[in-house]
Design a protein around this nucleic acid. Sequence first.
DNA 1: ATTAAAAAGTAACTTTTATTACAGAGTGTC
DNA 2: GACACTCTGTAATAAAAGTTACTTTTTAAT
Lengths: 212, 212
Amino acid sequence: MANELLHLKFDHVFDSNLINEIDKIGSIRTFSKDDIIIDINQPLQYIPLLLSGNIKILREDKDGNELLIYFLEAGETCTMSLTCCMGTTKSKIRAVAERDSSLIMIPVQNMQIWFHNNESWRNFILESYQTRFDEMLEAIDNIAFMKMEERLYKYLINKANLHTSNFVIAKHQDIAEDLHTSRVVISRLLKQLENEKKIKLSRNKIEVFDIK
Amino acid sequence: MANELLHLKFDHVFDSNLINEIDKIGSIRTFSKDDIIIDINQPLQYIPLLLSGNIKILREDKDGNELLIYFLEAGETCTMSLTCCMGTTKSKIRAVAERDSSLIMIPVQNMQIWFHNNESWRNFILESYQTRFDEMLEAIDNIAFMKMEERLYKYLINKANLHTSNFVIAKHQDIAEDLHTSRVVISRLLKQLENEKKIKLSRNKIEVFDIK
DNA sequence: ATTAAAAAGTAACTTTTATTACAGAGTGTC
DNA sequence: GACACTCTGTAATAAAAGTTACTTTTTAAT
């Protein structure tokens, strides 16, 4: 089952030798929605490859308030973890299961070895870096250039797409935390978006029209 | 002269063979303060290594307003450029000379080759990625979690340190652009900081007390 | 069905940041 | 020194976001 997922998501990424090694060496871990997969300041000993589900990557301020930076999808890795083999071993971010997810964890030593001798691994790492970089830039754009209403709407569309659904299952409080604002602000802006006929509100659930 | 700088800044980073190759292959370019080194959407054909001076990396919104993301110092590279050899060839950021600067430009092909066969180059790239990553996270923290007055003060200290001086030579307008706000806001907050005895204002120049 | 708890709605108010408009201060040129 | 120009100071106002406090709606538990 896990093997199937590994092949399904990574066969086109890694050469067959590497896939077999990953299969042999990596250990599968599963997480339920809202489980903390990696926490801030936690030492990083494994590189996680996401087999199924979604993970959200969060940053925390000094008062413990969060900010969503981006989501990971199956077939991706958390680039933050990659930097663990260089100097810093403590996570600077929190990774939380956006829904039930399964990962394959690879010890950092292999990162080093494969990076040295496997082209497909090197390319995967470099591409991951680029993807994350782009997403960090987008996160910066969002918070620096956009108003809260726009950020909220984009967030809803993004989240709906992630779940391939027109419905976002979430409480206003959850959304407020992801966007680093207060529940009252989110409720107000959601109501505005509803008045603009962009969404439809109900308890624990938001229908998003015109996705993409 | 340029050779000296190359050795001074990079001898401890690259092995001696690689240094010699860089010396042979790379071309030196010099820029004056405020010159645009790389612009948004510009195709990237070279990886720049900063030999002397400082570079600021900016992001632009849809109206052409900027936001400073971070500064580069001698001995560093612009990680954005690294991603050029993967798919994307157009710059997503603008690089501007913070002061007179010199760079050595390396054709992207070498990036690939050295990445394949040179350990010191690989490590440099990975370390660069990590450093930039950390700075992106810090940039996110700044804009997401800090008030403008704090951001401004941090910016001033940062900039003073960069120039190893107690004085920041800049107009309020310049600062406003880096922080993506308006001149009036900056003037107001600077006056506040002056009242708090943290800085001293004069025309085109700000003295910053208690640096670090 | 009654009750308690959770989630959402909303009004009133404050704070922060942005905008507009203009006055004054400093600098360089003739 | 008069003039033009750039830079800075500041007041008044507006908009966006944050906060407090309370109400209403929905759901789950008994």
